[in-house]
Design a protein around this nucleic acid. Structure first.
Lengths: 349, 349
DNA sequence: GTGAAAGCGCTAACAG
DNA sequence: CTGTTAGCGCTTTCAC
């Protein structure tokens, strides 16, 4: 509730320095409007009092917070443990820093994203993992807060950045098909309603699935509905999901996972079951998280420029913030690319 | 600098609903003071206008921001790419979330931590990686902001949390000595002046070095000054630093690294040079980051409860914030523990 | 149950 | 170059 030692206010400094509040304000914000010595004296007094302008009061009058919001349906703690988010945030942070903006993560507070959003003191928001029809998106829009959507469908009036999921997924499937695989299992990511760890992959999942399908169709390979299983986009999720498929009697020669974490989980489980990777089972991931190159065996995966995605989103938002409502929304689409490493090999049956 | 569509203010809602501003405020904050129907109507009008109480104005009157600051001398982008920080932040986030607090990262703005600190709207600060005599620490103290120091020396009047670095380091060295190693190279972390990637390890480095030394001394093993080389606490830093030692003609049978990242770098370089791990060279890390267990070979390292460190720091801060100045500072010391995996083996010479 | 009025601490015209 | 004077948008006693 309370507790802070009474902080000196601008009036205290003014009194002790024998000047007006304005003078003190100038000493901090426009020193050139004061004589050098007056300014210096004021700052000294301020320092001796331990005065620092109250940032909240200051932004109230300036009407800008100099901070960007990163909106996600994830718990805060997840953001740091999930490599995808960490990388994305790194990109956002980098762009924000360049322009002197700070970052504020907006995630569900007491379970409510709307509540967190209401509290957030930000000049704009980068929303990731929210579909365009998510209620919070409407809330932000109604409030007139600048926003850019990442990995969502387009929303008129707002910039967005997406990645070419479909093409990447298609390349992954084609790679496997080219290696002679015909019995392929797809490890999909759960939609948001299932409280998956990465609900942002909702629309993303569909796009990736479409890519896989396209390649399979083109090769005349049918995909039984039991060959698409969904689970959490985590290592544990990969283990559990693959296990479910195995338990159902599926014995694919290759796995197409929608996230690297799931792919790594599948590799782990496969080995526990005595399968050799890639000899007995080929595995392809998605995202190309840092770890992907360092696991054993190095993972074949679809690279998406996660960090850049964050940076681009932040720049778009910053542009919108400083240009005002006149800013024309842009839709940026970033490319994906298949990276072939050592977790895939020709089918052996 | 402007751009937001004019946001509706409380007065607009009041006018349209035909009530006073107070009523609108009550509708949001103390609905029980209004008739149910009035409250409902007001909220409806508010919603139709897209009104959301200005959070800045609100905290100005309430004099609390409900957000915690995490102060570090690192660039924001580093926080997400550095597993140590990510883990620490995860801990802080978890504790903050429990009490409905948000997190705000305070890192150098335009190169100035002091400036960033001045802008920050927070109720208190968790400072990590700042020595107690760091200027910003004085600034925070003077401003009367609650603060808890992590990995620093004690500062009267403030809670702190540290880890038992010395004991952990000593255990690591003893492990190696027990395996018959007598020619040990220490990969230290650079102090802050050297702009290392983890300046927070400054005092930490000294403590760890003391631990290593103690074990060596006890075993009667001398440590040439050329057997302690410092570098950045990153994989690349590990490679570079170990390379320097090798170039200087050092040929240890074991390496004691002050961070897992450095240890992994050393492993990588050693292999490139044709050394087998652990047969030809034993390597011990420090921190026990998630990755440590998953690299090849799994890394023997000193575990420190990083996540818990963050959580404890946040709880201490939260306690201080709500108890006020009467709160008695606590010093928490967390244990470290040697985790033996597969990167160490008996010396073969 | 509802409203008037006084701030919260600071900034920024506008005079002098 | 310095001071006076209004607010910024909201909360919150204190009357009605």
């Amino acid at each position: 509730m309370e507790g802070r030692a009474a902080r000196p206010r601008i009036a205290d400094v003014a009194r002790k320095a024998g000047v007006s509040k304005t003078a003190v304000s100038f000493a901090f914000n426009s020193p050139e409007r004061l004589s050098a010595e007056t300014a210096a004296r004021i700052r000294e007094v301020a320092e001796s009092l331990g005065y620092r302008p109250n940032p909240v009061a200051r932004m109230l009058t300036q009407r800008q917070t100099m901070t960007l919001g990163v909106l996600t349906p994830q718990a805060l703690a997840v953001i740091f443990s999930n490599p995808f988010f960490a990388l994305f945030s790194e990109g956002v942070a980098q762009a924000a820093e360049e322009l002197g903006y700070e970052l504020h993560f907006i995630s569900p507070l007491h379970g409510s994203l709307a509540m967190a959003m209401g509290r957030a003191m930000v000049d704009g928001v980068v929303a990731i993992g929210l579909s365009a029809d998510h209620p919070e998106v409407g809330q932000i829009e109604a409030a007139g807060l600048p926003m850019v959507l990442v990995d969502s469908d387009d929303l008129p009036g707002h910039s967005s950045v997406v990645v070419d999921d479909e093409t990447g997924a298609r390349a992954a499937a084609e790679h496997l098909i080219g290696l002679g695989h015909r019995d392929i299992l797809i490890l999909a990511v759960e939609g948001p309603q299932a409280a998956g760890i990465q609900p942002e992959h909702h629309g993303v999942s569909e796009r990736r699935l479409r890519g896989y399908q396209a390649a399979l169709d083109a090769a005349g390979i049918g995909l039984g509905s039991d060959h698409v299983v969904a689970g959490r986009a985590s290592l544990a999720g990969g283990v559990a999901t693959f296990e479910r498929a195995l338990a159902a009697g599926i014995r694919p020669t290759a796995v197409l996972a929608m996230s690297d974490a799931m792919a790594i989980g599948a590799v782990r489980l496969a080995r526990e079951r005595g399968l050799r990777i890639p000899d007995d089972l080929s595995v392809v991931g998605f995202d190309d998280v840092d770890l992907a190159a360092h696991v054993d065996p190095p993972l074949t995966t679809v690279h998406q420029p996660i960090r850049e995605k964050g940076a681009v989103a932040a720049r778009l938002l910053l542009a919108r913030i400083s240009a005002g409502a006149s800013h024309r929304p842009e839709r940026v689409r970033l490319a994906t690319e298949l990276v072939v490493r050592s977790s895939t090999a020709p089918a052996n049956r």
